[in-house]
Design a protein around this nucleic acid. Sequence first.
DNA 1: TCGTCGATCTACT
DNA 2: GTAGATCGACGAG
Length: 201
Amino acid sequence: MKKLPESFYLSNEVTSVARNLLGKYLLTCIDGVVSGGYIVETEAYNGVVDKASHAYGNRLTPRTQTMFERGGIAYVYLCYGIHEMLNVVTSVEGQPHAVLIRAINPTEGIDALLYRRNMAVVKHNITAGPGSVGKALGITRKLNSVSFQSDTIWIEDRGLSFAEHEVAAVPRIGVAYAKEDALLPYRFYVKGNAYVSKPNK
DNA sequence: TCGTCGATCTACT
DNA sequence: GTAGATCGACGAG
């Protein structure tokens, strides 16, 4: 097992981290069961200057406090009262940068993923979209602020990577309210991967 | 204190 | 295609 070193998360270039997370293995250990897969879709949230970020304008609340901490921990929050979303906090303390994990390609603990998603067989949408990823991996707000060096949730480098022509950088999803910032190409995904949510060419 | 809206997904019509 | 689930943060009053 080769967990990503803490230095990976301390970069100030949140878009680079988001792009480099593609192909890395995201794993959780819930109730003794390890499950997960490699990341195929991410979105970058660029700190206090990004209108789509919860931390825009240095907004500090009990919920967003996690993003202001040192990189290398999980930021899990509830959206629409239902979905638990997983973010990777990056950069140094005081810089609220984060990368939203939008989709993974499942490889480990398929049975557990199916059980938590209440599905009988693996379909392409089992881990497509941030809400689905959170549910499939058993991510809850209890994992908020947990370190990726822990044995509950972590990210591994298994040597898988994608060349530039295999990766697309496009505007983010569901952030129209952020106006001009919604147009920034902060969404990264692996072209043609079946588990990527939404437009996939 | 109340009303609105959100980094969404699913189940219906 | 569209409604419903249902909680945290925000702005108005």
